[in-house]
């Protein structure tokens, strides 16, 4: 966050995911003798601009968490690359974990499961600083206190253990730990799903405030589309390891093109739509695909995760709006 950082337009986006695939070998069949590949991610292309919140939505098993883990370095990609400020962070030239920790951090869904129950908040928050070579106790404590204040926690609770906090406060600790090394990219993996409804607004507001204040960029993984609409600048819809539609938030929510996106938006039980405004999107009624193309040909739910997806491409169908299409059958 120093003033030395200047925006260089030629450097391109802050984060670029190119052609990323992650395949997991699994043993199947009698005594696990045959090996097959689960294709969790297939040729995913995404870019994240500075100061943006890019949301990745989709159902469980669509690969959105694998994508998140790849970005923060918890998962090695099978092929493809990820570039941070123009520098490759995957493959041979990848930075060390210590370096990488300053680039991207992650906030997990369940703060209680992701915090060490035997460590005080102070110890938890100080560990990343010490690993980065900041050993002066006064400085470490000062930065921890500052971070606690920033996320809305009282610094005199620094010596408390995770179980002494409520769910919302624990998520604040999770956010503080992700931010303590001042990363530029923060991956939010379902940041409010595990929280009580009355606490969610506090955390959503906090995340948006911090984004402005610290000039952060978010990649948010979520299945809650009303939260996604509220927070995002751009949205990528994933379906069985592929991005099927991607674009600016108002394009995706206002004019979803892919049948899967429409299905996803139509399925949200919106408490207000039922009584005040009519449902904005219905499942049918999508505009047809551009001439010569077709949407994903496979039936929902029958897509085999072991086989290669059909040849397809992301086609631009409007200003900052792309959808995955396959060539139309002759």
């Amino acid at each position: 966050m120093s003033g030395a950082f200047t925006m260089d337009n030629r450097a391109g986006p802050l984060l670029r995911v190119e052609n990323l695939s992650v395949h997991f070998p699994v043993r199947t069949g009698l005594l696990g003798r045959s090996r097959r590949l689960v294709r969790a991610l297939n040729n995913v292309d995404l870019t994240l601009e500075k100061g943006e919140c890019l949301s990745v939505v989709g159902e469980s098993g669509c690969g959105k968490s694998t994508l998140a883990f790849s970005i923060v370095g918890l998962q090695t990609p099978t092929s493809g690359s990820i570039h941070f400020e123009g520098r490759a962070i995957t493959g041979k030239a990848q930075p060390s974990r210590i370096e990488r920790a300053r680039m991207a951090q992650i906030v997990f869904q369940d703060p209680y499961a992701s915090l060490n129950p035997r460590q005080t908040v102070l110890t938890s928050l100080a560990a990343p600083l010490r690993l980065q070579g900041i050993v002066n106790n006064g400085e470490v404590e000062g930065r921890v206190m500052e971070m606690m204040r920033l996320v809305g926690l009282s610094p005199d609770k620094a010596k408390c253990f995770p179980h002494e906090f409520s769910g919302g406060q624990r998520q604040r600790i999770g956010i503080a730990r992700a931010l303590i090394l001042s990363p530029k990219v923060v991956v939010l993996d379902e940041p409010v799903s595990a929280l009580d409804v009355s606490i969610r607004a506090q955390i959503i507001n906090l995340l948006l405030d911090l984004k402005e204040r610290l000039e952060l960029s978010y990649i948010m993984i979520s299945h809650d589309l009303s939260v996604v609409e509220h927070m995002s600048n751009r949205v990528a819809v994933m379906y069985f390891g592929q991005v099927v539609e991607e674009g600016r938030w108002d394009r995706i929510f206002g004019n979803p093109a892919h049948p899967y996106t429409r299905r996803l938006i139509a399925a949200i039980p919106d408490p207000f739509a039922a009584f005040t405004t009519p449902s904005l999107i219905d499942e049918a009624g999508a505009q047809g695909p551009p001439h010569g193309f077709d949407y994903h040909p496979r039936e929902f739910g029958t897509h085999d995760i072991y086989s290669d997806p059909p040849a397809s491409q992301l086609v631009s169908i409007g200003d900052d709006h792309r959808v995955r299409l396959v060539p139309a059958a002759a």
């Binding site: 409520s166 607004a201 959503i204 919106d270």
Partner: peptide, 24 residues
């Protein structure tokens, strides 16, 4: 009031969500 309303950002722009302070 604390829930983000689907469709409301398109009409009214992003409004800060109203929080219920404190905890249960």
């Amino acid at each position: 009031n604390s829930l983000p309303r689907l469709g409301s950002r398109g009409i009214h722009g992003r409004k800060r969500l109203q929080e219920i302070t404190g905890v249960v």
